[in-house]
């Protein structure tokens, strides 16, 4: 029993090294590949004596090192057809609204006419949200500056009273305003980030169309971190802009 555990550990270590190596390369068939290697190892172990550690290590060596396998997989993957326009599309979706709204429409066309993205991501890019960051700006700024003033009091010596009520985001306390505002700004940034990630990494698993390895590579993590920071800064900018108008 003890020998079996050691062998299992060796195999588990190898497989986790393999998964790690696959995560750091640009490939979408990693899942299936690991599965096939697992099967290969199982077949190989069936020919070995239980507890034959040396035989197991030889088997794993014959299969190849995780890094070289990951490289091989990356090199032999057929190039996915990515149109020239696709690289611009996530940016157009995010910023295009500021080009008189026209840029966003062009981005939308690029999104829907492309084969790079699947239907869910196309819907995501369209509805979260319309107009991209311009939409955020609109949502953010306009409600907060809406103040409805109504007057009461009639003609004559009595002074008219005017009550102004703030609507929209202005109703919320300051801190909550900022939080909601942050979500409103972060959403299209993250949407565009996801679109860009699918563009680069493709879909990991054909059986799970929503899955992409967006947070696994260190570069993606840096991008997401940068996105949060940009979103926070932009929210701050909008916030200050709105406050200064009162």
């Amino acid at each position: 029993m003890g020998e079996n555990t050691t062998s299992d550990q060796i195999v588990e270590e190898y497989l986790s090294d393999l998964r790690a190596a696959l995560r750091s390369v640009n490939t979408s068939s990693g899942h299936e590949f690991v599965f096939e290697i697992e099967q290969h190892i199982a077949e190989g172990r069936a020919t070995l004596e239980a507890g034959d550690e040396v035989g197991l290590r030889n088997l794993l060596e014959r299969i190849g090192s995780p890094t070289s396998l990951a490289n091989e997989l990356q090199e032999t993957e057929p190039a996915r057809s990515v149109r020239a326009m696709d690289r611009a599309t996530p940016w157009l979706i995010m910023f295009g609204g500021f080009a008189f709204g026209f840029g966003w429409i062009v981005g939308l066309y690029g999104l829907w006419s492309s084969r790079t993205w699947r239907i869910w991501d196309k819907l995501l890019g369209t509805f979260i949200w319309p107009g991209g960051l311009l939409g955020s700006f609109y949502l953010f700024v306009t409600p907060m500056s809406v103040t409805a003033c109504s007057g009461s009091g009639g003609p004559g010596p009595a002074p008219a009273t005017i009550t102004c009520v703030r609507h929209g985001l202005g109703v919320l306390p300051g801190g909550l305003q900022f939080l909601v505002g942050f979500v409103v700004v972060a959403a299209p940034i993250l949407t565009s980030l996801r679109l860009a990630s699918v563009l680069v990494h493709g879909y990991a698993d054909s059986s799970n169309p929503l899955a992409i390895r967006v947070l696994r590579t260190s570069r993606s993590r840096k991008n997401v971190r940068a996105a949060w920071i940009i979103a926070a800064l932009m929210t701050l900018v909008f916030f200050i802009f709105v406050q200064s108008r009162h």
Binding site: S29, E32, F33, E36, I37, Q39, H40, E43, G44, R62, I63, G64, S65, S68, L69, E72, L73, T76, E77
Partner: peptide, 26 residues
Amino acid sequence: GFEITRELSEADGLVTSEGTVYPLLT
């Protein structure tokens, strides 16, 4: 798959690492 990798590795120097046969099969 396993059979194929074994048969190929019998030929000297043909296959550097057996794991690379699988992407090839795909």
